[in-house]
Design a protein around this nucleic acid. Structure first.
Lengths: 146, 146
DNA sequence: TACGTATAAATCGCATGCGATATAAAAATA
DNA sequence: TATTTTTATATCGCATGCGATTTATACGTA
């Protein structure tokens, strides 16, 4: 079957533009906390599992050290995380939320854009799972190509 | 109901990470064309409707002149588009695909990541529409807040 | 016509993402 | 043990996105 030619039918563009829309929706909320979106999800990930290594955090966030290191250094400068190099293996850096970081994450627990999504609870959850499935399929297909 | 606390259940993070995954999937393909993803969708949009103004193109791509102008200048330097300031209203710039730009878009017609998405034709189309709906709901809710 | 306002692009600065590479340390192996 | 290879993080450069502002032009109105 011939592929879609119109941008409005591209799945990749739906994702791309939805990501921009989430960015626009989150910005005013996160501005009040003084966080960017990436900083926010980094803190959420560490709240969920503290003391991750840079690469472990990267697996959760789908990012690598080239992106994470500058972000973590900034979060450290802000006082929300601590980067500790391991003594047994000095290549490894573990990242911990500080007390201030935990307080910030608790403040952020009230963030809720569900209404803005215009979905039922069921619809929200199933859409979320479908997109995660899509993401994982894309990444799997990339692994196969190596 | 209490909001999800785990990153893996965030709808915004599903979209965010799926967007990164699409980026990783597209990069090797677009590298062969010498295009970035944003340059690619810009050319697709102009192929669909040529001679758009910068702001008209921005409505299609959900971007504004601060992002588009540098990209359009680069595409112009590459010879794929032409930027023409209108004579009746010199504030307006219209963007046209060059012959070379049309050739490039035709080459790109063969790009197809459908298999990598792991979806049936029906599933693909309905997921695409759901995500577009989500995006539009998010943007609508932002309008209301102004 | 003169002047304030609105509009379209462009400019600037900051924060990502990421390919390529560098650095340093650990592991493997000759 | 000496040397090579692998691994974890960091650095660098480029290309977005976007808020804030600037510039240039058009428009509205006294």
């Amino acid at each position: 079957m011939k592929p879609d030619r119109k941008l409005a039918d591209f799945l990749c563009f739906a994702i791309y533009s939805a990501n921009l829309a989430f960015g626009k929706a989150y910005r005013p909320i996160l501005d009040e906390l003084g966080l960017t979106y990436t900083q926010y999800v980094t803190i959420v990930a560490l709240w969920e599992e503290d003391g991750l290594t840079v690469s472990g955090l990267g697996e959760k966030l789908f990012l690598e050290s080239n992106t994470l290191t500058p972000i973590l250094k900034k979060l450290e400068a802000m006082g929300y995380v601590e980067r500790v190099r391991e003594t047994e293996d000095e290549r490894v850096v573990r990242v911990h939320l500080t007390k201030s970081g935990r307080r910030l994450r608790e403040k952020a627990l009230s963030i809720n854009l569900d209404d803005a999504c215009g979905l039922t609870a069921k619809g929200f959850s199933s859409l979320q799972k479908e997109i995660v499935g899509l993401r994982d399929n894309l990444l799997k297909s990339l692994d196969r190509d190596d």
